[in-house]
Design a protein around this nucleic acid. Structure first.
Lengths: 167, 167
DNA sequence: ATAAACTTTCAATAATTATTGAAAGTTTAA
DNA sequence: TTAAACTTTCAATAATTATTGAAAGTTTAT
């Protein structure tokens, strides 16, 4: 497998995987492209490489910046803007986990809590609803907490290792 | 909030959350409905409750059975078939984690491994592609392993607790 | 102040994904 | 064996989501 084939394969795989972490194909592909690029890329560069329109590129870059995993960069002497992505996979994982928790998991936890807090009228079906949504609430909360703890532990481990190197 | 409202809220929330664990709305809603039902439901029951077509119900029930979280049940004296879902949230989490790993994460790990194994031609861009996909490969593999370990640990914890009660 | 270089916005359109419903298929009871 | 009861399949259609491209907006250099 040559460079170009490997590159395309990576971008496509990462792109279709986007749905797994809740972002669309173009967004994931742009991130993938930046992730393996050795230098910041301009909008033109991205459009050319991925064969997507200017509007699409602009909108998805914006979203990636909102997520905090892509940053604008100005290159001296150049008028247009260049973009880079977070290159450290651990930090990338940390940001993604945090954002997904905030955007999707927290709201669900809140609703499950609301639903499981309805007043118990004594009927079997109400009891079952309360019991099961409470169980789901607890599970979701625990899973969310564990993911965050886990990702932050990784972070601490990395930080510590870096600290040792710097000292 | 009354029973019906809470029920609808739960089914809708769980339904729209479906995308988070990679299944479609109807599929998630059917699972949610079964999850809070006090007795097995027939296809008619599900169609009526969720206002969806027979075909849709049939196809999504099939998928849920493929996932292993819904099972057919026959009720004596009844011609039609009834369905139930796994009621233990821990076991549900275990099955979902396992299936997602098998269906989505493992194939990605394989491709990342392939891509990161291309021969190093010494150019900077090839070195970067290898380095970054390798990092992503390792992260994905570690995360996948941790999720599985975690879910199984929960399982063990539960099993132990139950054992204590039984003894 | 102007115009070139560049980016954003958003209505229109395309692509994808989900849903329907009726015909075909299967099972069961008599 | 037949026909009623029930389930599955799948082509057609609807709903949703992503993408385009051109007009409007912004920034920068002179």
């Amino acid at each position: 497998m040559e460079y170009q084939e490997a590159k395309d394969k990576f971008i496509n795989t990462w792109g279709s995987l986007g749905s797994l972490w809740g972002i669309n194909k173009a967004m994931a592909q742009i991130q993938a492209l930046l992730f393996i690029s050795t230098k910041p890329l301009s909008m033109e560069d991205i459009m050319d490489e991925l064969q997507i329109s200017r509007g699409n590129t602009s909108m998805n870059l914006r979203q990636l910046m909102d997520w905090g995993i892509v940053t604008k960069e100005s290159v001296p002497g150049e008028r247009k803007e260049f973009f880079t992505t977070e290159k450290d996979v651990q930090e990338l994982a940390r940001v993604i986990a945090k954002e997904r928790s905030r955007r999707e998991i927290q709201p669900v936890i809140k609703i499950l809590n609301d639903v499981s807090s309805i007043k118990d009228d004594g009927t079997e079906k109400t009891k079952e609803l309360i019991k099961q949504t409470k169980a789901l609430h607890d599970l979701t909360e625990t899973a969310d907490a564990m993911i965050n703890k886990l990702v932050n532990q990784q972070q601490n481990w990395i930080t510590k290792s870096l600290m040792k190197l710097i000292k």
